[in-house]
Design a protein around this nucleic acid. Sequence first.
DNA 1: AATTGAGTTCCACATAATGGAACTTAAGAG
DNA 2: CTCTTAAGTTCCATTATGTGGAACTCAATT
Lengths: 261, 261
Amino acid sequence: MTAANEHVGTGTLGKAIDVLEAVAAAPEPLRFTDLLKLVDQPRGTLHRQISNLIEEGLLSVRRDNSYELGLTLLKLASRAWSGNQFRAIAEPHLKRLHELTGETVHLGVLRGVEVIYLDKVESRQAVRMYSQIGNASPVYCTGVGKAALSALPDAELEKRLAAIVFKRHTETTLPDLAALRGEIAEIRASGLAFDRQEHEVGIHCVAAPIHSRDRDFVAGVSATAPAYRISMEQLTAWGPLVRETAAAIMEDMAARLGPKA
Amino acid sequence: MTAANEHVGTGTLGKAIDVLEAVAAAPEPLRFTDLLKLVDQPRGTLHRQISNLIEEGLLSVRRDNSYELGLTLLKLASRAWSGNQFRAIAEPHLKRLHELTGETVHLGVLRGVEVIYLDKVESRQAVRMYSQIGNASPVYCTGVGKAALSALPDAELEKRLAAIVFKRHTETTLPDLAALRGEIAEIRASGLAFDRQEHEVGIHCVAAPIHSRDRDFVAGVSATAPAYRISMEQLTAWGPLVRETAAAIMEDMAARLGPKA
DNA sequence: AATTGAGTTCCACATAATGGAACTTAAGAG
DNA sequence: CTCTTAAGTTCCATTATGTGGAACTCAATT
């Protein structure tokens, strides 16, 4: 649980999404009463909300009366992905970076205090794709997340930093704000962010920030590799390539989305 | 456009989903006025609905004021996929079928008059995964779709058939209800459905139906291959394997979801 | 048979969505 | 450069819609 589910739904729609997010965030199946405890709503209300969600195919009921997210979401997400403009622009650059490094390449965008992975390129498709794309990870322990943070204007950065809840994932996870601030300073200086097995043991990466002209949109690209096979030196050596990829994506964005709104 | 967007949203939530589906179904970018024509709502109302959707991250605005689906959908769909019980049960069986045939294996569930692909197993990952999973195709021109239809109780089948709008995708696409009814009879007899390049030229498949005990849930598995490499004879020869896979999935469902609700 | 807890239905009430109209911008024509 | 038309946005009285307390059903447990 990151701070992501402290989302306060506004309006009828917001409440509905809150229910979906509660179901999404739960590590184990939820039944009616479990949900009732999670979302702060009266029984009658929640019951009707759930009915509506089921009606729309956003939620469905299992045999044991627990809930799971519905197929409508898959259908919509499939279109959200293929129709995403930023992803389409970045795609060829990701492929190129993959060809140059031979390793897995990720594209992620910053949203609140988490990173949502928009795309992934890897050759040996050992891992299933859906398990990564759309996946949300905390900012402070991913290369893409830290890179994205570094690209924010100071005022905005402070707001986001304040919202982070630190949780130790591995031995090397940044423990607190002070450590994160230190890293961000370094990232701003070098234009590169490293994840030194901070999210998952055995996995490290180099990442570079991507941002729109006015920095209201920030994202990142990374090259990720298993630590046993790729050394930190090798990772560092890829730094310039990753930075160039990010730069190329930004150029393309500027060119294809008009000089500026 | 299939009959899918004749969805009539009920309640506030339904209207919101209608807007999302309109954006999802559009082949080209929509601006405010375009959307206004598609969803039948007064300007002020639509405007506020859009604001709410944007607020929740379900929609976002491009530089040119056209809309695209938001990242929240990716995040939720990622969980919808990994948490889906049916998919999890079917997964090992799909892998086994893939190993036996060496070809691409699909799992799809019936929803209204379309099939939504829930999973896909293939070795050479030439095609991007998101382009298939979550993808919705018409029932009448896919193996999985026809297999699923054949498993419906008659009353339900008739309702669905009535809602189908036939559109010719290829030379061999079933042209009308009569043709489809004929096929369904055959599928019921043999337990196997074929897609003879009816959806896409050069691609054909064998599929078998999957259903829950009371048939309120129907789906299908298929083995798909390019026509230039795999003959109809070979496809037919795989039939029993596909049927066995479907049977194994149903057994697993019965065992893991309780003898019956 | 009695008790508890889960899940569902109902309805007077209040909140939140509605939609008409007025208001800004932005684009095109004369 | 001003006029005109169209696109996009805001406002607010009206009303429809969602709300939530309480009563109810159903199943499991003792």
